Simulated assay, not measured.
Amino acid sequence: MIRCLAVDDEAYATKIIADYIAKIPFLTLAGTTTSAIEALTQVQQGNVDLVFLDIQMPELTDMQFLKLLGGRCKVILTTAYPEYALEGYEHDVVDYLLKPIPFDRFLKAAQKAYNLLQPVKNAEPAVLPAATEHLIAEPAAPAGNNHIFFKGDSKNKFLRVNYNDVLYIEGLKNYISIFTPEQRLVTYQTLRDLEEQLPQPPFYRVHKSYIVSLNKIRMIDGNLIYINDQTIPIGETYRDEFFRIIRDVR
C-alpha cells in the first residue's frame, strides 16, 4: 500500500485529492495539509511514500520543497500552470497534473508511482484491500443462480458473494470495487466483463462507472440514485433505459 500525502494551500483541493486516493486500491491516505512545512515534517518522519504537491505554496516553492525532501519519497506535482512542467521533470517528479484534474489522468499518474515504488516496497501486489481485510482478484464464472465466486489471493482460494449482499459495483479502469453492507471487495477486471456475469435483474448498469442492484435502491431523485449513504449518478447514455426498467418493475 502506497502512503500518500496531499499538499495544497487550498483545503478544497486537498479534499479532491483525498477523494481520488480513496478510489484507488493500492493507495492509502496518510494525511492532508495546507502547510509545506508540516508536509516536510511528515515526510522526514518516514510516514509518506508519495506526495501530491501543489506548486504554489506560500512557505516553500515546490522546487525548494523537492530539494529539502532529498529523495525520501516520490512526488506528483499538481498545478494550474503548465509552464512549470519542464522544471518539475528536471527534479525527477513522477508526474505533473494540471488542474482541474480528471480522475482518469490521476489514476494514470498513480499507476506510474506504483510502478516506481513497488521494487522499493518489496513487490507488494498491485491490488490491495480497501476498507476490508479481504483481497480478491479475478472473478470466476458464476455458480448457481444466487451467488458468484471470486478467485482469492492464493491458489485454489475462492470467495463467495451472494447477489443479495451486493449494494452496487464501481469500476475504475481495470479495477472493480464490489460494495456490500460489511465490506468493499476489490478485483482486477473490467466492469463490462463483470456486467456480463451478473443477472439482470436485479443488476443494471446506470453509468459508465456503476452497476446497481435495484433491490438496494432507497430513492431516485432526478439523475441521482441513493443506496444507503452513497449517491450514484445516472449517466445520460443509460438514463432512458434505466427509467424504462424502473417503470416496468413498479
Rank of each mutant, 00 (worst) to 15 (best):
Q45H: 10
D49G: 01
D49H: 10
L50C: 09
L50D: 00
V51M: 02
L53T: 06
L53E: 06
Q56F: 01
M57A: 08
M57W: 03
P58K: 11
E59I: 00
E59K: 10
L60D: 09
T61I: 07
T61H: 09
D62T: 04
Q64A: 12
F65I: 07
L66E: 00
K67V: 13
G71K: 02
R72Y: 06
C73R: 00
K74D: 06
K74R: 15
K74S: 06
T78G: 01
A80C: 03
A80F: 00
A80L: 08
Y81K: 11
P82L: 05
P82G: 08
E83T: 10
Y84R: 09
A85Y: 04
A85C: 04
A85G: 08
L86W: 07
L86N: 02
L86I: 13
E87M: 08
H91P: 07
D95G: 03
Y96S: 05
Y96C: 06
L97C: 01
L97T: 06
L98Q: 10
L98W: 00
L98G: 00
P100C: 05
I101K: 01
P102I: 07
F103T: 05
F103I: 07
F103G: 03
D104G: 09
R105W: 04
R105H: 08
K108I: 11
K108H: 14
A109E: 07
A109T: 08
A110N: 03
Q111W: 10
K112S: 12
Y114R: 13
N115T: 02
L117Y: 05
Q118R: 15
P119Y: 04
P119W: 07
V120D: 12
K121Y: 14
E124I: 03
L128E: 11
L128C: 12
P129D: 12
A131I: 11
E133H: 15
L135T: 15
I136T: 12
A137T: 15
A137I: 13
E138M: 15
E138Q: 15
E138F: 14
A140E: 12
A141P: 09
A143I: 15
A143L: 13
G144R: 12
N146T: 14
